[in-house]
Simulated scan of single mutants.
Amino acid sequence: MPRTRALRNRFVDAPGSVGERLRTARWERFRQLFPGIEGMTVVDLGGTADMWLRAPVRAKHVHLINLEPHPEGLPDWISAENADVTAPDVAAALGSYDLVFSNSTIEHVGGHSQRRRFVAAVDKLAPLHWIQTPYRYFPVEPHFVAPGFQFLPLAARAKLVRHWPLTHSRPGSPQEGMDAVINIELLTRAEMRYLFPDSVLISERVLGVTKSLTAVRAERAPGAAAASRD
């Protein structure tokens, strides 16, 4: 397992990895689109404190909303709570912010109806947003670093994930295998355009192939940034 984890890190997490280079480029694009980020309040749907602490940009304040526990001892510019933002009462109680940020979360919320609730929360919480998600038709499924994984039948995915060496946390039982894959629904360009009709859709590409999509409503026109758009 340590060897396969090291192999995954080479692709995804380690300094100098493909994943790290893409994240760096993504942050630079974000900075270009939101040049006033240092003075902005941000609500991050599905984010973690670690991501913001490692980021090359810093907002005035970031409020994290996640179902997973948050660490203790956060700096004063980061606050956090455990909540499901697709619940209307949760979104209503959050107040308002300058920017909604979400990275690789909308594909996890659980079905089309939940995604519509997620979008409703985005629209309510702030006038600006950055909503990124992996692209369904990129050849490698990003959560499991597995070629073509997203196109397999559900039962095959649940079985394969228990044996695939590049899985982040390998499930130990059939039930855990199904839990790992059943609520990951990668989105297409058509779905993102449907969900965010008034946003600009930016494509992040690897070797000319779209890897992820980001719905943006920004301070600066996305066409002025060093980013491809469709």
Rank of each mutant, 00 (worst) to 15 (best):
L94M: 11
G95N: 13
S96K: 14
S96C: 10
Y97Q: 06
Y97H: 08
D98W: 11
L99C: 13
L99D: 11
L99A: 10
L99S: 12
S102T: 08
S104G: 07
I106T: 07
I106G: 05
E107W: 02
H108Q: 05
H108V: 05
V109R: 00
G111R: 15
G111Q: 14
H112T: 06
H112C: 01
S113V: 03
Q114N: 15
Q114G: 12
Q114L: 10
R116L: 07
R116Q: 06
V119R: 08
A120Y: 01
A121R: 09
V122K: 00
D123Q: 13
K124A: 15
K124Q: 15
K124W: 06
L125P: 02
L125K: 08
A126N: 05
P127I: 07
P127E: 12
L128Q: 08
H129D: 01
H129Q: 02
W130Q: 12
W130C: 08
W130S: 11
I131K: 05
I131C: 04
Q132G: 00
Q132C: 02
P134C: 00
P134G: 00
P134Y: 00
Y135F: 15
Y135P: 07
Y135R: 11
R136M: 05
R136K: 11
Y137A: 10
P139G: 08
V140G: 04
E141A: 04
H143M: 12
H143C: 06
F144V: 06
F144N: 10
A146I: 01
A146T: 04
P147L: 09
G148E: 12
G148P: 07
F149L: 11
Q150T: 07
Q150K: 03
F151K: 10
L152C: 15
L152M: 15
A155L: 13
A156L: 14
R157M: 10
K159F: 15
K159V: 14
L160N: 09
L160D: 12
L160H: 08
R162G: 04
R162F: 01
H163P: 00
H163I: 07
W164M: 05
W164E: 09
W164D: 07
P165Q: 08
L166D: 04
L166N: 01
H168A: 10
H168G: 03
R170D: 00
R170N: 00
P171G: 00
P171H: 03
P171K: 06
